[in-house]
Amino acid sequence: MKKGTPAFEFAKGLWNDNPVLVQLLGMCPTLAVTTTVVNGLAMALATSFVLIMSSLMVSTFRKWIPGSVRIASYIVIIASFVTLADRFLAAYFYDISKALGPFIPLIIVNCIILGRQEAFSSKNTVKMSLLDAMGMSLGFLIALVLLSSFREILGYGTWFGIKLMPAFFKPWVIMIMPPGAFFMLGIILGVSGVIKNRANKGVV
């Protein structure tokens, strides 16, 4: 795929430039809310909403936002959409909103969102920015679902609340506690590193 084509801008977020696994951005929500798949998925969807809407706004107004106050403008745009997402979740999905707690408002400081506005939406057309935002959102979703699947299966023996593990399996309580998040993400990064190294050798 060539750089600059719509397909490239969409696909780069999935693996090659995956926001979590490669760029190491947005680590706080990634580690904090991935105790169950439902929480991870809700966080990924809320972040996607904010990222896509903010990219739409920023790329639409990119010619009118003065350079010197651009970061402040981006943050206000992002914070407004986060407030929307937060109110929506509190109104319709109260349990999820309760479980995620302060991590919903903390989407404001998720570096993936601000990073995409600064690095991409402020310089590209609306169409390209939307594709970029969707790709990055999907990449974030993949990483979160991957991490939360491992943690929920090992920590509770369930996946999406469905019992997966046989009865004799003792849940690894450590996986749903903070250290488990660090260990699991470290291992996932290591495995993706192995895959990437193999792929690189294959090319050369």
Binding site: F182, I187, G193
Partner: peptide, 13 residues
Amino acid sequence: SLKGAGITLIVAG
């Protein structure tokens, strides 16, 4: 493949 972020996260754990 663990160099950099991978090992840092495991140490953090």
